[in-house]
Design a protein around this nucleic acid. Sequence first.
DNA 1: GATAATGATTACAAATCGGAACGATTGTCA
DNA 2: TGACAATCGTTCCGATTTGTAATCATTATC
Lengths: 171, 171
Amino acid sequence: MSMNREDESPAPGHGPGAAFLLAQLGAHTAQLFAQRIAELDLTPAQAGLLRLLAGTPGRSQRELADVLGMPPSRFVPFADELEERGLIERRRNPSDRRLYALHLTDKGLSLFAELRKAGAAHEQQVCQALSAEERQQLIGLLSRVAEQQQLTPGVHPGYRSPRTDRPTRTR
Amino acid sequence: MSMNREDESPAPGHGPGAAFLLAQLGAHTAQLFAQRIAELDLTPAQAGLLRLLAGTPGRSQRELADVLGMPPSRFVPFADELEERGLIERRRNPSDRRLYALHLTDKGLSLFAELRKAGAAHEQQVCQALSAEERQQLIGLLSRVAEQQQLTPGVHPGYRSPRTDRPTRTR
DNA sequence: GATAATGATTACAAATCGGAACGATTGTCA
DNA sequence: TGACAATCGTTCCGATTTGTAATCATTATC
């Protein structure tokens, strides 16, 4: 199914409910982030993989595809592009030659550093309206909701497919 | 199912930033809502249209497609299905016979009532972790962020990257 | 009254999706 | 040991979804 645009309805009160605001702001936030990292020639999905590898290197493709929520058949070309760009590396696992161990290259690591800067700027852009304490307050509330909803920290279920623009093999 | 993917990076601190939490919870919230209204045989986009028509009847297709963020060419079959199901109605505009005026049928209106119930239950499901005051507090913070970000109340941008963020890949 | 502009629609090509099949490797178990 | 099942990465493929462009009718412009 394709999840798209409009969402929930207002709460019993008059204004929009928290659920709607969350969906609305979530989409907006993701969109801003996508635009920002487009300057680094990265899609949110690609950024996610870099971040995963920066945190836990050496994971298998199957594992990563699982976390990212994409079928292995789609993960392959997805990783291919990043490998061609010299950002990640496929290393054979000596103990089990079936699986690859994915790692960031030096180039990938330095791009990840850029990514963190972009993330910090993004955070600030989104939270402009709030003071430092209010931002912490918001983070606290959101964290509790996220925990109660059993969301894995650092991973989120997908929005819609980004512009995974393939090198467009026109011949 | 839809696609999953990582997003933004953590804030300067250690835990996740507000931006990431917003994106994560936004996606999760939208997903829950989609599941819930699937029982009514509705997608989020369809629910959005019903809600738009309930609030402001008689809008033209072009206008609605614009708000929903889809090209007119996709809006046509989209509206077709809802019309075939007897939920909406295309009425000719006497003053300008180029455009249609879309309205909810009685059946559409009663389904919209169900939709509101689902929305209320959804709100409660999402906010389980919070007390009544905390929920209000959260709504207050989110509303301020939404306003500062100039988000149109009651409408949220689709989960799709805008045309302008295309990562101008080498050809 | 000719021409441009607009709304709804159709046509169409390109991109994307995920499932199924495949070879290579490893685990199981008798 | 030897058969057989399971797993990982990959390719293949059809089905779906996407947006752009052309089309038709109507209305605005001047």
